[in-house]
Measured scan of single mutants.
Amino acid sequence: WVPDSEAPNCMNCQVKFTFTKRRHHCRACGKVFCGVCCNRKCKLQYLEKEARVCVVCYETIS
């Protein structure tokens, strides 16, 4: 899990986070992404309901 303080930009597209461009943690890899790069949901083994995942993890999992 990457702390918010260590991620000033999206770890995929590099967009800078602001008050309106929020950070989202991928529940699969723990990296920090913008809403566009972390907009998929899928079922993870260790969680009961679907969770937010990044586009890279989504392609790997599904």
Rank of each mutant, 00 (worst) to 15 (best):
N12F: 05
V55A: 14
T60W: 15
K49A: 09
V53C: 14
F19V: 14
H24A: 03
R40C: 13
D4Q: 03
A51P: 04
V15S: 10
R22E: 06
S62L: 11
N9S: 12
S62A: 08
A7I: 02
L47M: 13
C37K: 02
P8Q: 11
C38H: 03
K16A: 14
P8H: 12
D4G: 03
K43H: 13
Q14V: 13
A7Q: 04
N39F: 06
V2E: 02
C38M: 04
Y46R: 10
E6A: 07
A7V: 12
R27A: 05
F33R: 01
R22V: 06
C54T: 01
K43F: 15
S5W: 05
A7R: 03
E50P: 04
H25C: 05
T60R: 08
P3L: 08
C29L: 01
K49L: 04
K49T: 10
M11H: 08
F19E: 15
C42V: 12
G30W: 05
L47K: 10
T18Q: 03
P3G: 11
V36I: 10
K16Y: 07
F19W: 11
V15T: 10
C26A: 00
C54K: 03
N39T: 14
Q14E: 15
T60Y: 06
G30H: 03
V15Y: 09
H25P: 03
A7E: 07
A51D: 12
N12R: 07
L44W: 07
C57Y: 00
H24N: 03
I61G: 14
C57P: 01
S62D: 12
P3T: 13
F33S: 03
M11C: 10
C57L: 00
K43W: 11
D4E: 03
Y58V: 10
K49Y: 07
Q14W: 08
T20R: 06
H25E: 04
T18L: 05
F17T: 03
N12H: 10
P3Y: 15
V36Q: 13
A28E: 10
E48R: 10
V53R: 06
I61C: 15
C37P: 01
A28W: 10
F19K: 15
C42W: 12
M11S: 09
N39Q: 12
H24F: 02
A7K: 06
N12S: 09
P8E: 14
H24I: 02
C42S: 13
R40V: 09
E6V: 06
W1R: 05
V56S: 10
K41Q: 15
R52G: 04
